[in-house]
Design a protein around this nucleic acid. Structure first.
Length: 378
RNA sequence: GGACGGGUGGGUGAGUGGCUAAAACCAGCAGACUGUAAAUCUGCCGCUCCUUGCGGGCUACGAAGGUUCGAAUCCUUCCCCGUCCA
């Protein structure tokens, strides 16, 4: 087994630095994982990701199952080879699509029946199927299928989703271990996902139930789906308090630049978010001074880089005026340059967070980030 | 010179008596985006006033007259543009 997680440094406040080893490289944590749903981080080449120093990216089980199909990817040598990415890959299970494609699916205890958004065809995603697909993809970390619900949710709904998520996790775990027994230890780690909406006791109950299944890592899911940031933090605190210290914790789908450090402070090691990539394509650039909505007329003649303090390739070479022009003209390069910058920004924030932890300065760094984002861009 | 067709808000272009400050799209301006159905979506987009309201006033569908309670829409003349004929 080429996997391990080692906590290198514990901060009394709860944050920690660690090293996550996978067959596709070692990853310093806390880490930010760019999202590459369809086997591509939109607008970035794998080469660019390497240049940016990304060590692990996300891909999506549901989307790759629909297109191009996991059988094809397995046939072509697995997801790493298929997309020519030698870094680590974490695959989300499709649990988020239960939430985001709500109009196109129906949940039963057996699994989720989706109507494909591509051609309308029907597909049943079960916990076993999601695990099977991810084994075929050959991702380094596979997530169990969970039921992600919207917030706020009535307690009864949250309880039902929690129960189902645990049942599904049990089945996914069983399937995964059976496969390991039959076909030899897979080069993959399987993570469980804690649900429980915004009810602290449900969150604790979910965590306890999943702990029995002995996952090598645990995720906190179903957060940052509409509830206030304070609530996200509270729920995270509830959960990480119960999770084993020696195993990685992954907070799914977060966050804004000014929120990230808050999650790390609550013991989170891994995060992913579409925000830097999506916002980039929508002309929202993250900088050390706050957000820059680069399409704004105020940047027409602005010859400064996106972020004067940024060292990324885009900031070293191009002006705000040029970026604004590219967006106004609808040029594809706008998305490429903006995404490059935003991913650099997120990875750099995480680097600074790791550094801050080493110096016991995380709290200061967190409030500094918040201050910048309240002040807004110059 | 004649015959048709046409001139609508920054652009393209609907509308052919009242429901029209005038569809739709584009451009412009602003905003949203959190395990990606997103290079997407939302709002504003004639001027102006205030007691900011499904509020008031003014201006507006080539120009000027006219018909009508009411005209971008009907009539007259004129000016432009396009196509064709001489």
């Amino acid at each position: 087994m080429n996997f391990s997680f080692e906590v290198l440094q514990n901060d009394p406040t709860g944050s920690r630095r660690g090293l996550l080893k996978t067959p596709h490289g070692a990853i310093e944590t806390p880490v930010f994982m760019p999202v590459g749903t369809a086997a591509t981080v939109k607008a970035l080449t794998q080469e660019a990701l390497e240049t940016l120093g990304a060590k692990i990216i996300l891909a999506n089980t549901y989307h790759l199952y629909l297109r191009p199909g996991h059988a094809l990817i397995r046939k072509l040598g697995g997801l790493h080879k298929f997309m020519s990415w030698n870094g680590a890959i974490l695959t989300d299970s499709g649990g988020y699509q239960v939430f985001s494609l709500a109009e196109l699916r129906k949940i039963t205890d057996e699994g989720v029946r989706f109507r494909s958004h591509l051609d309308g065809s029907e597909h049943l995603l079960t916990p076993e199927k999601a695990a099977e697909i991810q084994l075929a993809l050959g991702s380094d970390i596979a997530m169990v299928l969970d039921e992600c619900i919207e917030t706020p949710a009535p307690r009864s709904i949250a309880e039902a989703a929690l129960k189902r998520t645990t049942d599904w996790a049990r089945r996914a775990r069983r399937y995964f271990l059976q496969q390991a027994q039959q076909n030899g230890e897979p080069a993959q780690w399987q993570f469980g996902i804690v649900q429980g909406a915004t009810f602290p006791d449900l969150r604790r109950e979910s965590a306890r139930q999943l702990l029995e299944l002995d996952f090598p890592g645990y995720a906190v899911g179903g957060l940052a789906v509409g509830e206030p940031h304070e609530t996200t933090c509270e729920m995270t605190t509830e959960v990480t308090a119960l999770l084993p210290k020696e195993r990685p914790r992954y907070l799914m789908g977060v966050g804004r630049p000014e929120q990230i450090a808050d999650y790390v402070a609550r013991g989170i090691d891994m995060m992913d978010c579409v925000l830097p990539t999506r916002a980039a394509r929508h002309a929202c650039l993250y900088t050390s001074e706050g957000r820059v909505l680069i399409k704004n007329a105020r940047y027409i003649e602005d010859q400064r880089p996106i972020d004067p303090r940024c060292t990324c390739a885009v900031c070293r070479r191009y002006t705000r005026a040029y970026l604004r022009h590219l967006f106004a003209a609808g040029e594809i390069t706008a998305a490429i340059l903006a995404t490059h910058h935003n991913i650099h920004f997120y990875l750099d924030i995480m680097r600074q967070i790791r550094e801050a932890i080493s110096f016991g300065q995380l709290a200061n760094f967190a409030s500094e980030l918040r201050a910048r984002y309240v002040a807004g861009p110059a």
